[in-house]
């Protein structure tokens, strides 16, 4: 059964790597939910955090195929509960009922990033689940535009 999986790949920091990784995943018909590429503590290495929809057996294949790419140094699957994840969210809301909006924003621990005459932009950070919940709470206020960074994640240290 298809479900969401988070893959964390360490890759060479050079051109063409993203195309190889994305091409491999899309060639097998998987939809990429989100993909972030970012710097790491080592400037020659980048980390890709990929969230895909796939059943367990196919995902195992994708992991092995990713490991086959020469530019991929390491692939690991981050299992539920074993990692910390964060996303950054920006939402432009209708500014008509500003007071009600600010109340909601405060109650969910978000911040106002920018204000304009008829709208305001809210920023928030948290794990994917929390961001999903936040969006639902803000929706009644009239979402004009929304953007999320996609998931970044780090494994938690093993217990003990």
């Amino acid at each position: 059964m298809a479900e969401k999986h988070t893959l964390s790949c360490l890759v060479e920091n050079q051109f063409g790597v993203l195309a190889r990784v994305a091409g491999l995943i899309s060639a097998r018909g998987f939809n990429i939910d989100s993909l972030t590429v970012s710097a790491t503590e080592d400037p020659t290495v980048s980390r890709m955090t990929i969230v895909v929809d796939a059943d367990a057996q196919k995902l195992e294949q994708v992991k092995r195929q990713l490991s086959r790419l020469i530019d991929v140094i390491d692939v690991s699957e981050l299992k539920s509960g074993e990692f910390l994840d964060r996303e950054l969210l920006l939402v432009r809301l209708n500014g008509a009922n500003r007071e009600a909006v600010l109340k909601t924003v405060e109650s969910v621990g978000a911040k106002v990033a920018d204000t304009a005459a008829n709208s305001l932009v809210i920023e928030a950070m948290g794990d994917t689940k929390r961001m999903d919940e936040l969006v639902e709470k803000l929706r009644p206020h009239g979402i004009q535009q929304l953007v999320r960074t996609g998931r970044i994640a780090l494994p938690r240290p093993a217990a003990g």
Partner: peptide, 8 residues
């Protein structure tokens, strides 16, 4: 020699 061949 190729782990991705196994259980494919």
């Amino acid at each position: 020699v190729d782990p991705s061949s196994i259980n494919k």
